[in-house]
């Protein structure tokens, strides 16, 4: 039960939603509500005066191929997106988040725009160079406006949105689900836990793309790391081993690992890693080394 007196608004269109946000100070958009319901109940500092339920907005519920892309509504539950299986890597990542009954409510937009730092659903979307459709509230006489932009343009550690901007959908290029992919998720305790490290990797021709959650206080993808991984992946044929070394057979100091653009350089390019009660930064480094090797083997 939320102690604060909140209003509940249920618009039928995106325009009505952003207009409601303009009219109600302290309003938040609600789709699955998994975070809002718990945060508002536990934390007096969580300012909530109105919930704008976006579940009735048709374009926030699309799950279809149109216009040369796979369009996924922000209000789709993680269970529904994963069950669709149109983007296998996304499905695999989503099935690792929370547990099934939470995923029946937690939405794609909510996972990316929420307060928790993991935002694992962002990984496949960042790797796919997906775009994001939003609607920005109008000001004065200026009407509200939709914007479709590359996700990477507005994802700087988290979604960077204008006040009142509402995420409507994500657009995944149709070739992305066809790319070879790899995904690993490691937790401290059981499978239902926040990730110590979640890795997602794809191979686009000869190029490797890599994204990780849990290793930093935000999801991470970088062109520099992609370039190093691509170089290391390409160099595998020049080594005595015919594929990237497996963690079981070769330590991080092995000659193969130290090859051109080797694993140490890749880890260094990831920057300082997170240290918290779940795991030290050093532990996460070792996990990442193992999972990067495993991922490259999957893609070889």
């Amino acid at each position: 039960m939320i102690a604060a007196d909140v209003s509940y608004l249920c618009p039928d269109t995106a325009e009505e939603a952003v207009d409601a946000w303009r009219r109600h100070a302290g309003a938040r958009y609600l789709a699955g509500g998994t975070e809002i319901a718990t945060a508002a109940r536990r934390t007096a500092a969580f300012d909530l005066r109105a919930c704008i339920d976006i579940k009735r907005i048709a374009e926030a519920n699309v799950h279809e191929i149109c216009g040369g892309c796979l369009r996924l509504g922000a209000a789709l539950s993680l269970s529904d997106v994963a069950a669709g299986d149109a983007f296998p890597l996304l499905g695999a990542v989503l099935r690792g988040i929370a547990d099934r009954t939470v995923r029946n409510r937690l939405t794609l937009g909510g996972n990316l725009a929420g307060l928790l730092p993991y935002r694992e659903a962002a990984l496949p979307l960042l790797l796919a160079d997906a775009s994001i459709l939003t609607i920005v509230p109008g000001k004065g006489e200026i009407p509200s406006a939709r914007q479709e932009r590359p996700l990477r343009e507005i994802f700087d550690k988290r979604l960077v949105l204008a006040p009142g901007e509402l995420v409507l959908s994500f657009c995944v290029p149709l070739d992305a689900p066809e790319w070879p992919w790899s995904h690993y998720r490691r937790t401290r305790t059981g499978e239902v836990d926040y990730p110590l490290v979640t890795t997602a990797m794809v191979r686009v021709g000869d190029a490797i793309r890599f994204a990780v959650a849990g290793a930093h206080p935000y999801p991470f993808r970088s062109d520099a790391v992609d370039a190093l991984l691509t170089e290391w992946f390409a160099a595998r044929g020049t080594d005595e081993e015919n594929s990237p070394p497996s963690a079981a057979q070769n330590g991080p100091d092995s000659p193969t690992a130290q090859g051109r653009g080797g694993l140490e350089a890749i880890i260094a390019a990831l920057g300082p890693l997170r240290a918290d009660a779940r795991a030290s930064a050093e532990y996460r480094v070792q996990l990442l080394k193992n999972l990067i090797r495993a991922g490259l083997e999957d893609l070889a």
């Binding site: 509940y8 319901a37 009954t101 029946n104 409510r105």
Partner: peptide
Amino acid sequence: KPVKSCMVLAVE
């Protein structure tokens, strides 16, 4: 569908 009712508002 199974959901956790502590995370759902009744008005929804």
